[in-house]
């Protein structure tokens, strides 16, 4: 089957909405698990933008990049969740405002 003809603008605006939502979540959640989720959302929205652009120009590159983003997301999540475990173990909390060893 062929793809649906949708204005690229609309798909991109959806991606932007998702991205901004994820960004807002990143900024206001203090729980590190939610922060990771917000990151996933943002990565996903970027992937959406790439795929949409790829289909708009009838090129496979968009999906290739999407797959690379997937790889990045997978690696990031695996390390990130490992860090979550460590944070819980060391600070006895998941609140990132309490885990502030980076304080200058």
């Amino acid at each position: 089957m062929e793809g649906v003809v949708i204005p690229l603008n609309h798909v991109l605006i959806v991606a932007a909405l998702l991205f901004v939502t994820g960004l807002a979540g990143l900024m206001f959640r203090r729980n590190v698990i939610f922060i990771l989720m917000a990151l996933e959302v943002m990565l996903n929205s970027a992937g959406l933008a790439f795929v949409a652009a790829g289909t708009a120009w009838a090129e496979a590159d968009g999906q290739v990049i999407f797959m690379l983003i997937l790889a990045v997301a997978a690696a990031e999540v695996s390390v990130g969740l490992g860090l979550v475990l460590q944070i819980q173990r060391r600070f006895k909390t998941l609140d990132m405002d309490q885990a502030r060893r980076l304080h200058g």
């Binding site: 990132m96 405002d97 502030r100 980076l102 200058g104």
Partner: peptide, 18 residues
């Protein structure tokens, strides 16, 4: 001054990036 801006709060870093 710059050292003060290093609050150690991840959310603050993210916000400043925004």
């Amino acid at each position: 001054g710059l050292s003060e801006s290093q609050t150690g709060k991840m959310r603050w870093y993210a916000t400043s990036m925004v």
